[in-house]
């Protein structure tokens, strides 16, 4: 990645990656400014209190700076997770279902932040089960089924390309959407 061999270079690879995983968490007892300071240090950044305050303000978390992580709402926790993943302005940002379980307002807020990160340069790899999310924030979408990529294209091209596919038409309820394409190509059975 970026000219760095993966084998034996975990620290160097991680220094150019920003990661927000769904199944991970922060230390619940720490305040969010303490968490930003901790992760800044782990990414080899010396963040001053002023810069921590500025970063929190940009993420709309300045009023919560003294709150402990466990006292934040789901949306605020996800915004903090995105802020920390992006703290060292990584070349590649990996986001694992960043809006899972959020209310519509928080989801839209997070999409705006992802958009703003994308405009700032670098690449974002986002995994999601929400086709609405994929359609809103992604330039290219890869549909993965049983660990294999079955199609890759822009959201609009995927719809156009598969609009007449009988499997897609069978599950469509009116105008074909990206979700219809996804269900049509991956099958209608419920997944674990």
């Amino acid at each position: 990645m970026a000219g760095i061999e993966g084998e034996g270079n975990r620290s160097r690879i991680n220094s150019i990656l920003g990661v927000a995983l769904q199944s991970t968490s922060f230390q619940a007892e720490l305040s969010i400014s303490q968490l930003v300071k901790l992760y800044g240090g782990l990414y080899n950044l010396d963040l001053s209190p002023k810069n921590i305050a500025l970063a929190l303000e940009r993420s709309g978390l300045s009023e919560e700076s003294r709150k402990r992580f466990k006292q934040l709402s789901g949306g605020q926790q996800q915004r903090l997770s995105l802020l920390i993943a992006n703290i060292a302005r990584p070349l590649l940002l990996l986001l694992d279902e960043p809006t899972s379980g959020l209310d519509p307002q928080s989801r839209r807020g997070l999409w705006s932040e992802i958009e703003s990160n994308r405009r700032g340069g670098g690449s974002i790899l986002l995994t999601t089960h929400s086709m609405e999310e994929a359609q809103s924030v992604c330039d290219r979408v890869a549909i993965i089924d049983h660990g294999k990529i079955i199609t890759v294209d822009t959201p609009q091209n995927l719809i156009t390309k598969h609009a007449s596919d009988p499997r897609v038409l069978k599950v469509s309820r009116g105008k074909v959407t990206l979700e219809d394409v996804f269900i049509g190509l991956t099958g209608g059975e419920i997944r674990g």
């Binding site: 620290s11 160097r12 991680n14 220094s15 150019i16 300071k37 901790l38 800044g40 240090g41 782990l42 990414y43 080899n44 950044l45 010396d46 963040l47 001053s48 810069n51 500025l54 970063a55 703290i87 060292a88 302005r89 990584p90 070349l91």
Partner: peptide, 24 residues
Amino acid sequence: MADTYQGRIQPRSAPSPIKAIKSL
């Protein structure tokens, strides 16, 4: 390392073990 968060300079080095242990 200088305070780089505000700038566009991207840190490309991992923290030293001492710095990492200090933060942790």
